[in-house]
Amino acid sequence: MDFGTDKAIYLQITDYICEQILNGRWKAGERVVSVRELATALEVNPNTVMRSYNELADRNIIVNKRGIGFFVSPDAPELIRTEQRAAFIHDELPRIFKKMRLLNISLEEITSHYQSTENQ
C-alpha cells in the first residue's frame, strides 16, 4: 500500500478496512486479522494499526472482545454505508455542485447522463 497521500496513515488503513468489509472480504461477525498480521502485511508500525482498530471500534464498526480479539460487527456493512452516504452528501456533493455551477451544468443534464449509464 502506498501511503503517499495527505491523509494520516491510520485513516487510510480504516478506509481500507471499511472497503474490505463492504466488498465482503471481511465478513460481518467474523474475527478480524490480528494487529500484528495486518501491520506486517501493510508494512506499518503495529501502533498505527492499533490506532485504526481503536478508531473503528469507537465507530462500532468492529468490536473488541477482550481476550479473544477484534470482530467485525454484525451491522458493520450498514454502518459503513450510512457513514459513507453522509460523507458523500456532506463532502463530495458540495464539490460536485460547485463545479456544476461553475461549468453551468444543469440538474437535468446530470439526470439524463445518470439514466443512460444505468442501462449499461
Binding site: 501511503f3 500484528r36 506486517t40 501493510l42 506499518v44 508500525n45 503495529p46 498505527t48
Partner: peptide, 28 residues
C-alpha cells in the same frame, strides 16, 4: 514486514536514516 513483526509495546527501536521514504510507515 520483519520490523512490523518484531515491534511491541515494550521494545525501543532507534533507526537512523537518510532514506525516510523507506521507513516512514514504521516510524512513530
Amino acid at each position: 514486514k520483519v520490523m512490523a513483526m518484531a515491534a511491541d509495546e515494550e521494545r525501543l527501536f532507534v533507526l537512523s536514516t537518510h532514506q525516510v521514504r523507506d521507513l516512514h510507515s514504521l516510524i512513530d
